[in-house]
């Protein structure tokens, strides 16, 4: 069987989850299966310099576009899939992957499973384990091949980075497909860190939906000040406009790895965990004992967060003024 593993990158960098897709493809494959990496972006060099663990690389590049939108990416992938006739296509769960996986599934009619953590091969079928309900439930699914899987970041280890042999790279010029597409890139914003860069912060106090309202964020901010920590928020808090986008932790915000991560009222959806689970010390407070944040926390508490923050702030202040 042939397995196509989708990879991504921009601004001269290959996304690390690209290397996870190669590991996932090997996990799904058996001896003799061929793993073909698929890349589409402005510059194929980082892919060529990294994806040597795959058997081959299809590198579609469009020098005329900083980013390749999902629309041309999906069309380039569909062409590659038609030519390669794979038994399995792996797509990373990313902003791009969300558009690409379903698009390919609709065009081919193949089964698709999203949010996959584990893959077990069983002849002409796969058994996969996927996350639903924000990680609160695991779904074991039976998948007839050919099929498409959308793989969770972090579910598989990164494959070793090494060069792809020049003879194993098939170049595709994507400039025409990008130029004639119905989705035209007109600008890219890279965040500026004038005020805060969470990725370099050593201590972070992060508030989630459980904080309740905007005014209550000041209570958490008070504790952050005492601890010398940056205040951050999960997606619902930032979406509500209670904290600026630069302070968002998670998939669509920043990926952080501080020495201390104190999560207040954060449930820990997979998209949030992706951004913070590698922190050195994680302390989580949430009244729901089944909140997935407790799966990654080193210390967890299920008490009322306001009572706790008041009491803890008092103790820390008293200790420091002693």
């Amino acid at each position: 069987m042939r397995i196509v593993a989708c990879t991504e990158g921009s601004f001269g960098k290959l996304e690390p989850l690209s290397l996870e897709m190669i590991t996932a493809a090997r996990a799904a494959g058996t001896a003799g299966d061929e793993v073909v990496a698929f890349f589409a972006g402005q510059d194929p060099e980082p892919a060529i310099a990294s994806l040597g663990v795959a058997d081959r690389l299809i590198a579609a590049s469009a020098g005329n576009s900083q980013l390749i939108a999902a629309d041309p990416y999906a069309r380039l992938l569909a062409d590659a899939v038609a030519a390669e006739e794979p038994g399995l296509v792996l797509v990373p769960y990313s902003a791009n992957g969300l558009d690409v996986a379903g698009d390919l599934a609709a065009r081919t009619g193949w089964p698709l499973v999203s949010y996959v953590n584990e893959i077990i091969r069983d002849d002409d079928r796969l058994t996969v384990v996927a996350q639903v309900y924000g990680g609160k439930i695991l779904a074991e699914c039976s998948v007839p091949l050919p099929a498409i899987l959308m793989i969770n970041p972090g579910a598989f280890a990164e494959a070793e980075r090494r060069d792809v042999d020049a003879s194993k790279v098939q170049h595709r010029d994507a400039a025409a497909i990008v130029a004639e597409g119905k989705v035209r890139l007109i600008g890219v914003d890279v965040p500026s860190y004038d005020s805060v860069d969470l990725t370099t912060a050593e201590r972070i106090v992060c508030v989630g939906r459980g904080i309740g309202d905007e005014a209550s964020i000041d209570i958490a901010r008070g504790l952050a000040d005492i601890l010398g920590a940056e205040i951050a928020g999960s997606r619902p808090v930032v979406d509500s406009g209670w904290l600026p986008k630069a302070r968002q932790v998670g998939k669509s915000g920043q990926k952080v790895k501080p020495k201390l991560y104190l999560a207040l009222g954060v449930s820990g959806a997979p998209e949030h965990l992706e951004g913070m689970s590698k922190s050195d010390l994680i302390i989580a407070v949430n009244t729901d004992p089944k909140a997935p944040i407790f799966n990654v926390a080193h210390f967890g508490a299920t008490c009322d967060l306001f009572d706790l923050v008041a009491n803890l702030s008092e103790r820390l202040q008293a200790a420091s003024s002693r």
Binding site: G109, W110, P111, L112, V113, T127, V128, V132, G135, K136, I137, L138, A139, E140, C141, S142, V143, P144, A147, I282, A284, V285, T287, K290, P292, F294, N295, V296, A297, H298, F299, G300, A301, T302, C303, D304, D307, L308, N311, L312, E314, R315
Partner: peptide
């Protein structure tokens, strides 16, 4: 053709973290 659910399950608590309980004063 579609994939189908064979079984759902609750994830085991993978974390080895310590539960500090639900009393705010003790936790603090």
């Amino acid at each position: 053709r579609s994939a189908e659910i064979v079984a759902l399950r609750l994830p085991g608590q993978r974390g080895t973290g310590e539960n500090l309980g639900d009393n705010p004063e003790n936790v603090a």
